[in-house]
């Protein structure tokens, strides 16, 4: 990897200042994605600001029954937190479906939000990639697209967002707290990740100096009955082809509350609002689930290599909702 200066920040303000004053500087958390990308020459920061010593590793109760999760909470620790288990099983399940136990012990919640795509053309410096090099073109178009997105894509980029956790966070309307030199702000999950459009290299709403400090989960009563279902090419330790984060409450055969988000199919963690709207107040049966799935997937842009994802996503949505309604 390209040589870099290493700074270990002692507090949040120091970390933010260190990055703000240094073009090309990057925050380093657990390293599971950034170190890999640096070794591949995809990320080439001149300065790396290690934030792992910052006091951001606590999970605290919020007055409304939600949780405030420090950005440096490790994925494994969050998955094991009994409050997460009880209030947001989909979060725990999403984390446990991701990567491997070793990686979950290293990876942080903040880093998970900033995970970069697994598009193989993004990873191969010899391939054209608009995300890596704006204006270079996209070799994924016309290439192997099994892992690529079908929702929210553009002619510039069809890369899928790889995170499992973010799918659950999207379903739960999480809020991301960030700190920059200008202070603290709160970004709703729906606005945190950007669709590629014609600027696929801009992936989040973060300014270059902004550090994710926490993720807040509001109280979402329906999430107590939730599920994260991940479908992939082997039984474990693989990225999602399709994943579904769903929460469902049925009263007297009618959908009283529902949350639905998709992974593996979206250019960003995909909140399925069209499906939710169709489901809310309607019957909780197989037909309704299928209609909702189809409505969500209707705008899908598919290619020969990922056309199956509409069928797979539909099947997985229906199966997950069926399971929750049963």
């Amino acid at each position: 990897m390209r040589p870099f200066a290493y700074v270990r920040a002692a507090d949040v303000d120091e970390a933010v200042r260190a990055v703000a004053g240094e073009p090309g500087a990057k925050f380093l958390g657990g390293g599971t994605n950034l170190v890999d990308l640096m070794r591949e020459g995809i990320e080439r920061p001149a300065t790396v600001v290690d934030v792992t010593a910052l006091p951001l590793a606590a999970v605290d109760d919020l007055p409304d029954g939600g949780l405030r999760i420090g950005a440096l909470v490790r994925n494994s620790a969050l998955a094991a937190d009994p409050r997460v288990h009880a209030r947001y099983p989909m979060v725990s399940q999403a984390l446990l479906a991701g990567a491997s136990p070793q990686l979950r012990n290293m990876a942080t919640v903040g880093g998970n939000l900033l995970q970069r795509t697994r598009c193989p053309y993004f990873y191969d410096a010899a391939a054209a990639c608009n995300k890596r090099e704006p204006g270079a073109g996209c070799d994924a178009l016309g290439g192997f697209t099994r892992g690529h997105a079908i929702l929210g894509v553009s002619e510039s980029c069809i890369a899928a967002h790889p995170s499992d956790l973010c799918v659950a966070l999207a379903a739960l309307d999480a809020v991301v707290e960030v700190r920059g030199v200008g202070g603290t702000r709160r970004i709703p999950m729906a606005e945190f990740h950007r669709l590629p459009g014609d600027t696929p290299h801009v992936e989040t709403a973060l300014a270059p100096d902004e550090l994710v400090t926490a993720v807040e989960l509001p109280a979402v009563p329906v999430a107590a009955r939730s599920r994260y279902r991940k479908v992939r090419d082997r039984a474990s330790y693989a990225f999602a082809l399709v994943s579904v984060a769903a929460a469902l409450e049925v009263r007297d055969g009618v959908v009283a509350d529902v949350r639905l988000a998709l992974g593996g199919v979206g250019a960003k963690p995909w909140r399925a609002r069209a499906a939710e709207e169709l489901l809310a107040g309607g019957p909780a049966d197989e037909d309704a689930f299928a209609r909702a799935a189809e409505a969500e997937l209707e705008p899908a842009t598919v290619r020969p290599g990922n056309a199956f994802k509409t069928r797979l996503a539909r099947a997985t949505i229906v199966a997950t909702l069926r399971e929750l309604s049963g």
């Binding site: 053309y121 191969d124 070799d139 290439g143 039984a235 474990s236």
Partner: peptide
């Protein structure tokens, strides 16, 4: 192994993207 027919390049030269069986399989 995915070989891109446009370039002859191996597209998944990695144990993350070439799926050998894991314990759970």
């Amino acid at each position: 192994t995915l070989v891109d027919p446009r370039t002859g390049r191996v597209v998944n030269p990695s144990l993350a993207e070439y799926h050998v069986p894991v314990h759970a399989d």
